[in-house]
Amino acid sequence: MTEREQSFLEYVQSGGQVEATDWMPDDYRAKLIKFIEMHGNSELMGVLPEREWILRAPTLQRKLALTAKVQDEVGHSQLIYRVVEDLGKPREQCLDDLISGKAKFHNVFHYPTKTWGDVGVIAWLVDAAAIISQKALLKCSYAPYARIMKKICWEESFHILHGRDVVLTLMNGTDAQRELVQEAVDRWWGPLMQFHGNPIAKDEDPMYVWRIKSQGNEEARQQFLDGYVPQIWELGLTVPDADLRKNDDGVWEYTEPDWDELRSVVTGHGPKSQDRLDLRRKARESSAWVRQVVLAEAA
């Protein structure tokens, strides 16, 4: 590491923030692009599981709320890809890498949404897990990313409300409706526990070293468990992990998540990975002419 790089590292580690036009080490830029691009991909792919239920929403209010939630996520991907673009990787290239399978997206978006119960559980628990990671990014050393995270976190908070409302309505409903929620929690628990990644030590995580992330993976998972397991239990729902409990020292103990599953899923071998990428690919191909016509003048 050169002296300049070293002093940059010390600068970000002491809480310093960097703007798009500032000098930065190549390694930092590359890590930023990789991390932020994956976030953008996840927002965009995260649209697809819920989108299927926009057409099936059972009341006008739910229809509107779910459309608005999916709309927010598309908006987030736009904001995030803009940040990546200003770092030097154009959006079109990000999208090409996404549909070719070269770039990754979050594990939870590789799974099917089977029932209306999933719509509630995703908006409540998956978004809760995501907001924990995103809140930690408010302190990201790259200022343009930290800034858009404010808007993103603000919008995500509505999603959790929407999710809780769907879940509470179902839990107050018929036995079959309650079963929808329990069955969805059972299916989503594994992916949720894998969501924050393996418990790599903070100081060995390059994303933390550069202060792109401001917390470690296990810290995030503990925060999730602490915030949400009591909320799950109080509704009379169960969590499919017999070993899950909070120790006297406040730390949650749980069965080791399936890290092989995580690795396999995020490399494109999840139950819905290929279907979703196919849908993205087709949508992109069939509307390529629109982008050509629309962006012609801009070029």
């Binding site: 736009q78 904001l79 803009r82 200003d86 800034r147 858009i148 629309v294 962006l295 003048e297 801009a298």
Partner: peptide, 21 residues
């Protein structure tokens, strides 16, 4: 305050999209 940026074909699109975003 600065809120963010977006891509648009011209001022008309930019105005509509800014309003939405």
């Amino acid at each position: 305050h600065h809120a963010g940026s977006l891509e648009a074909a011209n001022h008309d699109f930019a105005e509509q999209y800014a309003k939405e975003f």
